[in-house]
């Protein structure tokens, strides 16, 4: 006969073992759920057309798909366009959004709540119908099919989101330092420049990368408003897919090209990004 205390211990260790099993199985399920599609696109990019529709992970790898993208679809140029657009978007978004967010975070502003809601609400206007007004606007300034046009369009999206993210971040910075600097005779611009901005660097990096990803992945306007001179990599992806008899191996290769830079960036800001999104909610 085993005595009751050993029995209890055995029971406890079985329970522990069981919860460890559940924990690890759950982890495996999560990893499969999150990573499997990425994994599948990644390996399909190196498959030959004959292999791409077979559910096998053993195949003769090839770089042919990437060669086709750069040779026939001008992907080097498309990636370059996307990069330039995103860099300009970030460079313009950050200072403007930082100024706006700072004003909304520290100053008394009439109808502030309404303003914040309005900035957010502007993002939910159906983008499709804005294509026509934009087309008219850009034609007036002779900006059709230019990088500049896409930069401007992306700003309408990145600035509002960045203001929200940065305001949440700045709200958490202590205002006392600024008040005492003000008393000591520092100008308001000086405070922004020498106290707030250095403290906001993590928030600025997060916001900058978030804007970069947003602009890189923008699809509708890039599709409807670009031509030969300003086409982005995402539109290139659509062109690769075409209408029928989709070359899935080339689609996957193009997918890799547009996806990898974004995965790296998102990985870099993962911690701050979630905090930024939930900032207002947790308090």
């Amino acid at each position: 006969m085993t005595n009751p205390s050993t029995l209890n211990k055995t029971r406890k260790s079985i329970a522990n073992l069981w919860s460890a099993v559940v924990h690890n199985v759950s982890l495996i399920i999560i990893v499969l759920f999150v990573m499997f599609p990425i994994f599948w696109i990644a390996i399909s990019a190196f498959k030959l057309p004959v292999d791409v529709k077979k559910p096998s992970i053993i195949f003769q790898p090839t770089l042919q798909n990437f060669q086709i993208l750069f040779r026939d679809f001008d992907f080097a140029n498309l990636l370059w366009n996307s990069l330039i657009i995103c860099v300009f978007v970030v460079l313009i978004t950050l200072p403007l959004a930082a100024m706006g967010a700072y004003a909304l975070s520290r100053y008394k502003i009439p109808f502030k709540k309404g303003l914040l809601v309005g900035i957010l609400a502007s993002q939910f206007f159906p983008p499709v119908v804005l294509v026509l007004p934009y087309f008219a606007l850009f034609r007036r300034f002779d900006l059709i099919d230019t990088i500049a046009a896409l930069v401007i369009i992306n700003l309408t999206r990145t600035i509002p989101f960045s203001i929200w993210l940065l305001k949440g971040f700045m709200d958490t910075l202590p205002a006392e330092v600024e008040e005492s600097a003000l008393v000591d005779g520092c100008t308001e611009f000086g405070i922004l420049r020498h106290i707030v901005l250095p403290l906001s660097i993590p928030g600025m990096i997060t916001t900058g990368i978030f804007s970069f990803i947003l602009a890189w992945n923008e699809f509708l306007y890039a599709l409807l408003l670009t031509g030969r001179h300003s086409r982005t990599a995402i539109v290139g992806l659509v062109n690769v897919v075409g209408e029928r008899d989709v070359p899935w191996e080339q689609m996957s290769a193009a997918g890799i090209l547009v996806m990898i830079p974004m995965l790296i960036m998102a990985f870099a800001i993962r911690k701050y990004f979630v905090e930024g999104l939930t900032m207002g909610a947790v308090k």
């Binding site: 999560i30 999150v34 990573m35 990803i213 992945n217 995402i234 992806l237 897919v241 997918g255 995965l263």
Partner: peptide, 27 residues
């Protein structure tokens, strides 16, 4: 392992909807 898995969670969000749509259609 939980910490490693946590680091992966942001990935799908960074992938463009266009690519997600095509990928799922493909799969």
């Amino acid at each position: 392992w939980a910490n490693i898995v946590k680091a992966l969670l942001i990935f799908p969000f960074a992938i463009s909807l266009t690519l997600r749509g095509y990928s799922y259609r493909f799969m």
